[in-house]
Design a protein around this nucleic acid. Structure first.
Lengths: 192, 192
DNA sequence: GTCTATAGGTGGATAGAC
DNA sequence: GTCTATCCACCTATAGAC
């Protein structure tokens, strides 16, 4: 079999692994099921990945890449405050549109996964906050702490929604409006 | 074997089930392991519970009872705003002191567990908010929506902390102070 | 690289003796 | 009520033929 076909198999495994992950979450993820969907035997997977954990890791890395791509779209706004608000809204969109990825990144047990709180991704939010403070769009204060407050707030909204606990606000459109009102209230508390 | 000893077995099963649950979470929870820890055969469990799911349900109900007991302590405060702030802080304490229970109640996948958002527990928070509005300690508005905003905020702080994502703020005491500053900022945005 | 076959483990649930 | 024995399903991983 050619090298090209072999790479296709690897790619197919990765895509089906991602599908299964998004459907079933990390717990019910199984190497055999990925193999079945990819029309290869379970043993064949070991030619491409070092077992289940390696396959799982590859899937997670893809999720983080997608998350970053959402956040970066906020930079197209023109003012610092608009960029901050857009970052929050992109965070919401990522969570609602990629619930399984969101759970993996932000709702898993500590120790086994990525630490976003001390990563380049979090630094992105700190930067948005800092430029707002500099532009007097937010009250003076510790940029890192204020970023953490904002992060917790948007995460609280998104994660409760993903757990089905905010069904009371209505459908996804109603949630979006609720999200924007809610973050605006927080920003009011953070204003100069 | 006497009725009393049989009830003891049931209780022992429930306690070990709870322990296992708190250690391993809902995913790795297994009826057989509970039986092992309780020194009975796996089959014996079926004399006391209708299988794994029923056992799991019994464990979750206990967690909710503990959570309620935390919240109710907030009622000993004298003013409406103090009661609201105390409710938030009790929420924090419950999460930090009972992380596994917290995860079960507020961080599990939808469909399989309790819906707090439309429960008596959430109504408790709505009541705290409503009395603050009536006392002009909060701006006028939809009590239910404002309660949801506050809930999401404290949940965001607690759940990120439990996932190890807010390690940046320091130890548990530092987190407590951070939590209080953060909620005060939100309340400032909700003030009249 | 892929296959089949297999080893060895987890788990849930039931039947029937005691 | 509890046990042992059992069945069945699922899983990870490896060995060896092709």
């Amino acid at each position: 079999m050619s090298v090209r076909e072999s790479q296709d198999t690897r790619l197919r495994l990765l895509q089906h692994a991602r599908d299964l992950y998004l459907e079933s979450g990390p717990e019910r993820f199984s190497l055999r099921e990925v193999a079945r969907r990819s029309d290869v035997s379970a043993a064949a997977v070991y030619r491409h990945f070092d077992g289940k954990e390696a396959l799982l890791r590859a899937v997670c890395e893809e999720g983080l890449r997608v998350f970053s791509s959402y956040l970066l779209r906020a930079l197209k706004e023109t003012t610092s405050l608009e960029r901050l608000r857009a970052a929050g809204d992109m965070y919401r969109r990522f969570g609602i549109e990629n619930p399984r990825d969101y759970r993996v990144i932000f709702m898993s047990t500590p120790g086994e996964d990525v630490d976003v709180g001390s990563s380049a991704t979090f630094q992105f939010l700190v930067d948005r906050v800092s430029e707002c403070i500099k532009a007097k769009a937010l009250a003076r204060g510790d940029g890192l702490e204020i970023a953490a407050v904002i992060w917790a707030h948007v995460h609280g909204l998104v994660s409760l929604r993903l757990c089905g606990q905010l069904a009371v606000v209505g459908d996804d459109d109603a949630f979006t409006r609720f999200f924007l009102r809610s973050t605006d209230r927080l920003l009011k508390g953070l204003a100069p």
